[in-house]
Amino acid sequence: MKNLISFLLIFSLSAPIMAAGNCVQILSDNHSNDSRSYQVYDMDLEKDFDESPEEYSLEALNSLLSRLGCDSMSQKDEGEVVCKEIMPGNNFSKVCYLENELGYFFISKDMLDSVNIIYNRWD
């Protein structure tokens, strides 16, 4: 009985580490790609990119991770999001950058109904 309890305790403590590793494996197509592009549909998101691009980017990324079967990130794991216009004055050129334990992401919204997420894994 003690062995079972010890095993369950160790397993529960290592679950977040295993979940992150599993997400990296999923995002990188079993480590065969160092970067990969994904799309999420704007109509599936509640936030607005023009009003709050940082929150919108986090929501889009969590939506993607959920769709792929990864756990959503807790607030402490989300990482910092920085959004900037590549062409100053052109709102359509806005791109957000997010990095966390999974890798780093470039998130942008196109002129139609898609959010483009580029995943890059860490070395």
Results as ranks from 00 to 15, higher is better:
Ile17Leu: 00
Ile118Ala: 05
Asp123Asn: 14
Asp71Gln: 10
Glu78Thr: 14
Asp42Trp: 04
Asn116Ile: 13
Asp123Ile: 06
Tyr56Arg: 05
Lys94Ala: 01
Met43Leu: 10
Val81Ile: 13
Leu8Tyr: 13
Leu65His: 07
Gln39Asp: 12
Asp113Ala: 06
Cys96Leu: 08
Asp44Ser: 07
His31Ser: 00
Pro53Leu: 01
Leu68Ala: 07
Val82Ile: 13
Gln75Lys: 06
Ala19Phe: 08
Leu102Asp: 00
Asp77Ala: 15
Ile118Asp: 11
Ser57Ala: 15
Phe105Met: 09
Val81Arg: 12
Ser14Asn: 00
Ser114Val: 14
Leu45Lys: 08
Phe7Met: 10
Glu78Asp: 10
Asn90His: 01
Phe105Asp: 13
Ser114Glu: 15
Arg36Cys: 00
Asp113Leu: 07
Tyr119Ala: 09
Glu85Lys: 15
Ile5His: 05
Gln25Pro: 06
Ala15Gln: 06
Leu27Phe: 05
Pro53Ser: 14
Met18Phe: 15
Leu61Val: 14
Arg36Phe: 03
Ser37Tyr: 01
Glu46Phe: 00
Asn100Cys: 09
Gly69Trp: 01
Phe49Thr: 04
Met87Asp: 09
Cys83Leu: 09
Tyr56Trp: 09
Tyr97His: 14
Ser57Pro: 06
Gly69Ile: 04
Tyr38Arg: 06
Pro16Asn: 04
Leu61Arg: 15
Leu112Pro: 03
Ala19Lys: 02
Cys96Glu: 07
Asp110Thr: 06
Ser57Leu: 13
Val82Phe: 08
Tyr104Ser: 10
Asp123Glu: 03
His31Val: 05
Arg121Cys: 08
Gln39Leu: 11
Met1Gln: 13
Ser114Met: 14
Asn120Trp: 04
Met1Glu: 14
Ser66Trp: 11
Lys47Cys: 02
Met73Val: 08
Cys83Ala: 10
Ala20Ile: 11
Asp50Arg: 13
Ser28Met: 08
Ala19His: 05
Met1Phe: 04
Ser72Phe: 05
Glu54Lys: 14
Ser6Met: 03
Asp113Glu: 15
Pro53Thr: 09
Ser108Ile: 05
Ser14Cys: 07
Tyr41Val: 07
Glu85Pro: 02
Leu8Ala: 11
Glu101Arg: 15
Leu58Arg: 15
Leu13Thr: 04
Phe49Val: 01
Gln75Pro: 01
Phe92His: 08
Asp113Ile: 06
Gln39Ala: 13
Phe106Asp: 09
